[in-house]
């Protein structure tokens, strides 16, 4: 063995060691990432209830998905979380960061106030919000609404409002993190650009549009990617804020991830659950590829 090694050229030895070191993460990824992924893909072609041996059913699970109304409902919900949640949370976080950046009075204290929700357990927070949404006199939000003469809202009990009622605490919880990242981005923009703009007599809005936002682009891309992934995987809030963690009423709030969980661990239909997982995997893959392309174009 030693003999063999000694006969290698310098380049070959370099490659040998490179592969040796690379082998560790490759083995790790193969064991905890690739193997389960391939295994899941195989399971998606079977009918398996965890207890008995799986039975090969070909594409039956995928065919069932196309005619399953609940699947399409949760598929749409998942994107609704993203399409609504992303712009709202980004705008909010940017506005807060932009103005907080200019505040000197108790700056650190205010900033930590924004950050606290991010540190709070999602489960505890979800339950506080769940009770807050109750009708008055139990629910504090409806209590406030009715005390200022506005009609009470059903929130979580309404198929039309429930999704937004679940999304609100999710956005609120993530706000602190986004604000911190935005502020770091804002601080990184050299003061000299702003001085130049002031000397040239450029207005506040134009400064924001022409200098701040373009220079914030790397920060923006980073937050967009992280927030998108977070929203597409929304689970804790829905699981804890809806009855039995089912994403009701009438599946109005159920995201794909929760549907997969229910299919697997409530219905014990592992084949159908993994088939849905493969679809989610493809969707995430496509979104990631699009985002990579957008980042590269700069």
């Amino acid at each position: 063995m030693k003999h063999l090694y000694n006969r290698l050229s310098f380049q070959q030895k370099k490659a040998y060691w490179a592969w040796l070191f690379l082998a560790v993460p490759i083995l790790f990824f193969a064991a905890v990432r690739f193997y389960p992924t391939i295994n899941a893909a195989m399971i998606s072609f079977t009918d398996w209830n965890l207890l008995t041996e799986g039975k090969w059913v070909g594409l039956a699970n995928y065919e069932r998905m196309f005619t399953d109304k609940v699947f399409w409902k949760v598929f749409a919900n998942t994107f609704l979380y993203l399409i609504v949640g992303l712009p709202v949370s980004l705008t909010l976080a940017f506005v807060v960061a932009y103005y907080l950046d200019q505040v000197r009075f108790m700056h650190g204290f205010i900033r930590s106030l924004y950050f606290i929700p991010y540190l709070t357990t999602a489960v505890a927070m979800a339950w506080v919000w769940r009770w807050g949404y109750q009708p008055a006199p139990m629910g504090v939000i409806n209590q406030i609404l009715s005390s200022i003469g506005m009609p009470q809202q059903p929130f979580l009990r309404s198929p039309n409002q429930a999704l937004y009622a679940v999304l609100a605490p999710a956005i609120w919880a993530g706000l602190g993190f986004q604000v911190i990242i935005f502020m770091a981005g804002l601080r990184a923009i050299p003061e000299t650009y702003y001085e130049a703009a002031r000397i040239d007599g450029i207005g506040k809005l134009a400064t924001l549009w022409e200098i701040t936002l373009p220079l914030l682009r790397p920060t923006l891309v980073f937050i967009v990617v992280l927030t998108s992934i977070g929203l597409l995987r929304i689970f804790d809030q829905v699981y804890n804020m809806t009855v039995d963690g089912q994403g009701g009423p009438l599946n109005a709030t159920r995201p794909l991830v929760l549907n997969i969980y229910n299919t697997a661990f409530k219905d014990f239909d592992m084949g159908y659950a993994t088939a849905q997982t493969m679809v989610l995997f493809l969707v995430l893959l496509i979104i990631t590829l699009i985002q990579l392309r957008l980042m590269r174009s700069k």
């Binding site: 009990r157 309404s158 198929p159 009855v243 039995d244 089912q246 009701g248 009423p249 009438l250």
Partner: peptide, 11 residues
């Protein structure tokens, strides 16, 4: 059953 009640109550 829960969905049935929801259909009546809010659906």
């Amino acid at each position: 059953w829960l969905d049935m009640i929801d259909m009546i109550d809010v659906g």
